[in-house]
């Protein structure tokens, strides 16, 4: 980012594009109170993640910067901000909108690609082996069957494997 942000070089339509997506409707209601950032558990660990700042950048029209950034992928979907937001911005849903837009624009962080591969290979984010199932049996839980085929089918169908 440069030292001075020239608004005329940004995309003022960006906020309307977000608001036109399901879940993004309320983004313009944000009045920057900072309740989201104050309660965010991710921000506590990583200062770079700042929901208020992301909304601000979006409202100003910093489309490229927002969509290409890693921040939008860091949300842990804990719903703290969603519950607390006094203007009902529905931040989690806004983040989903931003992620979808980022993917469409070709911005997929490498870690996402790894996760998609794991899902495709194991039907889960990590492999279930006998060790896990024996532990489950001991405490009376049913075995977990790997559903590799179904999941990888869905991934193929949605085109996630081509990202």
């Amino acid at each position: 980012m440069t030292d001075v942000i020239n608004v005329s070089e940004l995309d003022p339509r960006f906020k309307y594009e977000i608001a036109a997506q399901p879940g993004g409707e309320n983004i313009k209601a944000c009045f920057s109170c900072g309740t989201c950032s104050a309660g965010c558990p991710v921000r506590e660990i990583d200062e770079r993640y700042n929901p208020r700042r992301i909304i601000r950048m979006a409202l100003l029209g910093m489309k490229e910067q927002v969509l290409s950034s890693d921040f939008i992928w860091l949300c842990s979907t804990c719903y703290t901000c969603y519950e607390r937001c006094p203007q009902d911005v529905k931040l989690i849903e806004v983040m989903n909108v931003l992620k979808n837009m980022a993917v469409k624009a070709g911005y997929v962080p490498s870690v996402m690609k790894t996760q998609i591969k794991l899902l495709s290979d194991f039907g889960r984010l990590y492999e279930i082996d006998e060790f896990d199932n024996k532990k489950r049996e001991k405490i009376g839980l049913p075995r977990i069957q790997m559903q590799r085929e179904e999941i990888s089918g869905i991934i193929k169908l949605t085109g996630l494997d081509k990202l």
Partner: peptide, 17 residues
């Protein structure tokens, strides 16, 4: 042409035409 204002949320100056 512009109004220059420090945006405290971004921590940077912004130029508004």
């Amino acid at each position: 042409e512009y109004v220059k204002i420090y945006d405290e949320m971004l921590g940077e100056d912004i130029l508004i035409p």
